[in-house]
Simulated assay, not measured.
Amino acid sequence: MQRVTVTIDDELMAALDRYMEAGGHQNRSEAVRDLVRAGLLKEPKADDGARNCVAALVYVYDHETRQLSRKLVHDHHTHADMSIATLHVHLDEVSCLEVSLLKGPKTEVEHFASHLIGERGVRYGQLVVVPAEPEEAEKAHGHGGAHRHAHPHD
Rank of each mutant, 00 (worst) to 15 (best):
D34Y: 05
Q67N: 13
V60N: 07
G125L: 03
R33A: 11
E110T: 10
G39W: 07
H76A: 10
T78K: 08
S83Y: 09
E93T: 11
A50N: 14
D34K: 08
D34H: 15
G49F: 02
F112P: 08
S114Y: 01
Y61A: 04
A55E: 04
Q67M: 13
I117G: 02
Y59Q: 04
V54W: 03
Q126S: 14
S114W: 04
D92F: 04
L87R: 11
R70H: 15
E133H: 13
V58E: 11
D75Q: 10
D34I: 01
A85F: 10
T78C: 04
V99I: 15
S83L: 14
S95N: 15
G39F: 06
R37W: 12
Y61F: 14
K106H: 10
A113W: 04
E133P: 07
P44R: 11
V109Y: 06
D75G: 00
A38F: 01
T65A: 12
M82S: 03
R70M: 10
L116H: 09
E64R: 11
H77D: 01
V73K: 02
V73D: 06
V60T: 07
V89W: 11
R70V: 13
V109E: 07
T65H: 12
H111P: 00
R120P: 02
V128E: 12
M82A: 12
H111W: 12
D81R: 11
D75S: 00
E119S: 13
R123S: 13
A56Y: 14
L87H: 13
E98H: 06
A38N: 05
V99D: 03
D75C: 01
H76G: 00
E43Q: 15
R51P: 03
T78N: 02
E93L: 12
R70W: 06
V128Y: 10
H74P: 08
L91A: 15
T107M: 12
G104K: 00
G118I: 13
S83D: 10
Y124I: 09
D81V: 03
L68Y: 04
H115S: 11
L116Q: 14
A31D: 05
V122L: 09
A132T: 02
I117N: 07
L72M: 09
D81H: 09
T65C: 02
A85Y: 09
V130K: 12
S100A: 15
A50M: 05
E43V: 15
E64T: 12
L68N: 09
L41H: 03
L87M: 12
V89A: 12
H79Y: 01
L41N: 06
A80G: 11
H63P: 03
G49T: 03
L68V: 07
G49R: 09
E119R: 14
A31P: 08
T65G: 00
A50T: 14
S100G: 01
R37M: 07
H77E: 04
A85T: 01
L57I: 05
Y124E: 14
V89L: 14
S100K: 04
E98N: 09
H63S: 06
S83N: 15
H63E: 05
A85Q: 09
D48V: 00
H79M: 08
A132V: 01
V60C: 08
D48P: 00
K45I: 07
L97W: 02
T78R: 03
G49N: 12
R70F: 09
H79K: 02
D92C: 01
T86H: 14
L102R: 00
